[in-house]
């Protein structure tokens, strides 16, 4: 089942007299439950793709259908509801609320997500139940990213969108976080889309999409993706 459909999607940024095409006539479909990696050099349009899919940004042209809903026509509030119910974000810089504890950071989505999961259980699964009442600044980078993953999953979304989730971590911690991310996604049956420029992560994906200069240059399905242990980090 196609969970994501990009139909002739364009995103152009205009700054004064200068226009920049971040995505140009992108047509793309993603199957549900897959682990998708989007690869490309800096400025290729990877993050733009993720932002449009996540409802953080609107396309200049074309249609984006997620789980049967055309999100390119949604209002600001409808997009907020979409983000609350359908997608979970994991950022390179974690983006935890510094004035909330670990548990509060995860459980705050309970106020907006209609089908949310238990924050306590998720934290226990990632081994952070002992840190539930600590503030983000009291945790290491890897621990903070695990909290971020929990928060993304707590909404019980269909899709997990990750923007360089290991970018701010050392390679060892990065692998741990990545393994956890994949394990959790698989366990809860989520589609996971990771934007990265790390080729190694791509080797673990079901589908690898290459983007260059705002265009999709290839979509490769990998019949035998490697496990994290098999990848030479």
């Amino acid at each position: 089942m196609k969970i994501v459909q990009f139909k002739d999607v364009t995103r152009t940024y205009v700054t004064g007299d200068h226009t920049q095409d971040a995505l140009v006539h992108v047509d793309l479909e993603i199957e549900g439950g897959k682990f998708v990696v989007i690869l490309g050099p800096s400025g290729a349009g990877k993050s733009t793709f993720l932002n449009l899919l996540g409802g953080l940004d609107n396309p200049t042209g074309g249609t984006i259908i997620v789980d049967g809903t055309d999100i390119s026509t949604l209002s600001s509030d409808e997009l907020a509801d979409y983000r609350a119910a359908k997608v979970g974000f994991v950022f390179q810089s974690y983006n935890l609320i510094p004035t909330l504890t670990v548990l509060e950071n995860v459980s705050l989505v309970e106020e907006i997500a209609p089908d949310h999961m238990s924050a306590q259980e998720l934290l226990a699964e990632v081994g952070l139940d002992d840190h539930a009442h600590q503030f983000p600044h009291e945790l290491s980078g890897g621990e903070q990213q695990r909290v971020s993953i929990c928060r993304a999953l707590a909404k019980n979304p269909s899709i997990l969108l990750c923007d360089e989730p290991t970018g701010a971590l050392d390679s060892e911690t990065g692998v741990v976080v990545l393994k956890l991310l994949l394990k959790m996604a698989k366990e809860y049956g989520k589609t996971i889309i990771i934007v990265t420029h790390n080729q190694n992560i791509a080797r673990m994906a079901d589908v690898v999409i290459h983007i260059r200069s705002g265009k999709v240059t290839s979509v490769d399905e990998q019949l035998h993706p490697l496990s994290a242990e098999e990848v030479d980090w």
């Binding site: 907020a80 974000f89 928060r151």
Partner: peptide
């Protein structure tokens, strides 16, 4: 600003 942007990404409405 950053915290509010996070809330917005998570799905909180502007009004909230």
């Amino acid at each position: 600003y950053r915290e509010m942007a996070t809330l917005k990404v998570l799905g909180f409405r502007n009004k909230a």
